[in-house]
């Protein structure tokens, strides 16, 4: 029960001028757990993701991360090289737009292999074999390993981004609307893929989404944000089936039932 947290944030506050993007936000994440941050545009959820991942500094509060050696590291005071090393290996970031993360002029295999090479892999054959293995895990035909991403569909690009991110076996992955902008059928496949990969590999995920259905399918726990504040948090099914805060009730009641 008292298993140590993987990521622990407390008192995060960040204002853009008069606009509060984060107000005294706390968040804990345990190994292997999926935490969804939901809310509409401008609620501060993407800002929270950026602050949790060290991309943006809060004005107050701190984010602590338990490194693989078990030591707690302050994400915002650790040296830049150490933070970048985390982002290259132990962490991953999946963007809504895969083009932000992928190198469009580099083959699929090169894209997947980059993080391995950044970690010091210097054996072409091994890197290529790992790339092919990961393409298959994300259901991309191994024959496409030498193709450029620009020949891939939107869903394939997103899966390629996931392969590129997971190749180093990160323990924590940040996802920003990973299924946004995709066709519904493509979304379903991607959700299923994310769910099974994350469960099988025991990866912890902080998932930002405005789509409550995505949160319900993937997340163990959920945080609802409005104007920079966490207005409600709890188990995903609790919050979505028994919403208490007016804003959560509005969000839940606004979802079209299929």
């Amino acid at each position: 029960m008292s298993e140590p947290t993987l990521l622990s944030a407390s008192g995060l506050t960040l204002r853009f001028g008069a606009i509060p993007a984060l107000l005294d936000v706390d968040a804990d994440l345990w190994p292997g757990e999926i935490l969804a941050i939901v809310g509409e545009s401008g609620s501060g959820k993407t800002t929270l993701l950026n602050v949790l991942s060290g991309k943006m500094a809060p004005q107050s509060g701190q984010v602590m991360y338990r490194d693989p050696a078990g030591a707690m590291q302050d994400v915002h005071t650790m040296p830049a090289p150490a933070l970048r090393a985390l982002h290259r290996s132990d962490w991953g970031f999946v963007h809504q737009n895969p083009r932000e993360n992928l190198r469009m002029a580099v083959s699929a295999g090169g894209n997947v292999g980059e993080r391995l090479m950044a970690q010091g892999s210097r054996h072409y054959g091994h890197i290529r074999a790992a790339a092919i293995d990961w393409l298959e895990q994300v259901e991309i035909d191994a024959a496409r390993v030498d193709d450029l991403p620009r020949t891939f569909s939107g869903g394939m690009l997103q899966r390629l981004q996931i392969a590129r991110t997971l190749v180093t076996h990160p323990r924590l992955v940040f996802m920003d609307e990973p299924t946004g902008g995709l066709d519904v059928s493509v979304q379903a496949r991607l959700l299923d893929l994310i769910r099974s990969l994350v469960r099988r590999l025991g990866i912890a995920v902080v998932l930002v989404t405005h789509d409550l259905a995505v949160a319900r399918l993937l997340a163990d726990r959920i945080m609802v944000m409005q104007r920079g504040e966490v207005v409600e948090a709890g188990l995903t099914d609790q919050v979505l089936d028994d919403p208490r805060h007016p804003y959560t009730q509005l969000l839940v009641s606004s979802v079209l039932q299929a």
Partner: peptide, 16 residues
């Protein structure tokens, strides 16, 4: 930060 993985990506692409 001596992050030179990208250069190896270029070599990887050439070999490929």
């Amino acid at each position: 930060l001596a992050e030179y993985g990208l250069m190896h990506v270029k070599l990887y692409e050439d070999i490929t």
